[in-house]
Every structure is written in C-alpha cells, then in structure tokens.
Design a binder for these strands. Structure first.
Lengths: 152, 152
DNA sequence: AGTCAATAGTTTATTTTATCAACTAATTCC
DNA sequence: GGAATTAGTTGATAAAATAAACTATTGACT
C-alpha cells in the first residue's frame, strides 16, 4: 500500500519549516478562513466583507483609510468592498463633518442585522477551527497574536 | 489637529472584530509575510517559493501532491513553483520509483546553499516580527498554532 | 486478464486579490 | 496665499486562487 495521507503529513511535520511561526500562521489561517468563507457564503459575505461590515457596525466610526490600515488592505480595495456593501444597503458613507475629504463608514439597520447573523456563523466556525484548544488556551493564543498583530 | 494614526488604531482595536483569532492571524501574518518577503527578495525568493525550497531541502522527499496539501496550495500552483525553482537549478523532479505518476522534489546542492542563506534571513525577519515576545512566549505561540494548523 | 474508479501531475481559463501610478478634492504647514 | 500632504477614487498590471479538462499511471474488483 502506498503511503497514506496522514503519514505523509507527519513526515513533513517534522521538517524545520513546520516549526516556523510564519508558516504555522499561514496554514492555520488558510484552514480557518476557508471554513469561515464556507459558512459566510450563505449570507453572501466573505471574510473580507465581513470584516468591513463588522467595523462599520461597531461604534468606532472608521474612515476608509482607517479600514485600510487596520485590515492590511490597499485603499483601493476598501473602495470596492464598501461599494459592494453600500449597494446592498448594508453600510453608508457618511461625510465626515470635520474633514470633508473623509468618509465615515457606518452600518445601516439592515447591515447590523446581517452582521449579527454573521457573527454567530463566524464564531461557530471559529469554534470548530479551535476545537482542540481549551478556553484558557484560546485566550492565550488571542493575547499572543494580538501582541504580534499590533506591535510597534 | 486631526486624529493621529495611533489613536485611530486603538479605537478600532477595541471592536469585537479585533478579538477574533481569525482576524488577528490574518493581520499578524500580513505583517510577518511582508517583512519576510522584503528580505527574501534579495535572494529572488518569496515566502511561497521559500516554503517549497525548504521542504525540498529537508530529508522528507515530498511529492508535489504532498507539497500542495502541506502548504494549502492547489496542485497547479505547485507545478508553477517547482518549475520556477527547477529552472534555476535549485530543485529537481526525481521520478518516484514506486509510483511513476509521482515526482519527488529534491533540493540540489545549489538549492541547499540558497536555502541555508534564506533560513537565516527568514529567522531574522521572524525575530523582528516577534520582537515583543519572549522565548517562552514564542514557544507557546508555536505550540498553540501547531495544534490549530494540524488539527483533525 | 480486463474493466473501472481514483490519483499525480499538467495545462488552460477564469476570477479574485495585490500592487501601484495617476488624478481630484480637501486639508495642513509654512 | 502657495506648497506639500492626505482621503478617496479610478484604471492598469501582476500575482494568486479556483476550477475544469486532459494524460499517464495505479489500485480495486470481478
């Protein structure tokens, strides 16, 4: 019999690459994002539009520039994402009264309603992805990642 | 004065999204990958070709299918990546004697030499990315991520 | 042995995402 | 007031993700 799926994975898992945090993050994220996207598809969302919607529906009133920086995306991609959500009536561009160059992106009631459904979907998916971790371990992971993600 | 870069980040950092592990991984990885790519550019590599080279230069003798599964990439992308490395004389496709459909991807001496330079470059970049974490914390993070990345 | 299903790799096409330059309008700095 | 900077937008181009179709095996089954 040829080598099984699982045994080959174990073989590669003992390489140096498999101990690199960068690589582990890429792999963990690929798994998680694909699970999340699967579930979000039912709401006609993806991980990226979900993230924009989440910030729009928070009370943080982000500008597009802030969305770009926070989500590690180019400003032009934010335009496209906001266009998509706005055309569905989920968010609006509010002119920033203190700086007329700037828009504040805010969720509409429909946007908030959809966001709330999306949150439960995403957190269920996250629950599956992190199934092998205890609550304490999840908190640890969250805290360590936050320090890496927001360093500087 | 308008809101500063840093204060807006703090404002968004207190949103629900900012506590989602999925999001934190995406952001941490974006930072890390861009730093790694910057450094790898001098060797004419990127994170992805580096990963393939690393596995080829290990003693694990991966097939292309195994590379695809392990790196969460489509088989057709592996073709392109191996083509690129092979045309530079860094890896070779060795026919698998026990299954003639399958290639084993192996690093050449030149490939190994370049890989060794790349490892030090990448680990320096990782050091910067994880600058705020102690050794113990890095090990913790590595172990938690590994469990998420290789669950199931 | 012979058929049939499944697998490894490849090619090609399509879509999505990333990157970057150019432009407008508004703001800030001097 | 004028120069430099910034937020948003558009458009072009390159890189990456996704998926179908095809070839050459191999494996399973009878």
């Amino acid at each position: 019999m040829a080598e099984t799926h699982t045994s080959s994975r174990h073989r590669l898992q003992s390489t140096d690459l498999a101990t690199e945090i960068e690589f582990l993050m890429a792999r963990a994220r690929a798994l998680g994002t694909s699970k999340a996207n699967e579930q979000l598809a039912a709401l006609n969302l993806k991980a990226r539009s979900y993230a924009v919607l989440a910030l729009a529906c928070s009370d943080s009133r982000p500008s597009q520039r802030e969305l770009a920086e926070f989500l590690s995306l180019d400003a032009s991609q934010i335009v496209a994402l906001v266009d998509g959500l706005e055309s569905r009536g989920l968010v609006v561009r509010e002119p920033d009264t203190s700086d007329r160059r700037s828009n504040v992106i805010v969720g509409t009631p429909e946007g908030v309603a959809l966001y709330e459904r999306a949150v439960s979907v995403v957190s269920a998916a996250e629950g599956k992805s992190l199934g092998s971790l205890s609550e304490t371990e999840r908190d640890q992971l969250r805290e360590l990642l936050a320090r890496v993600a927001f360093e500087g």
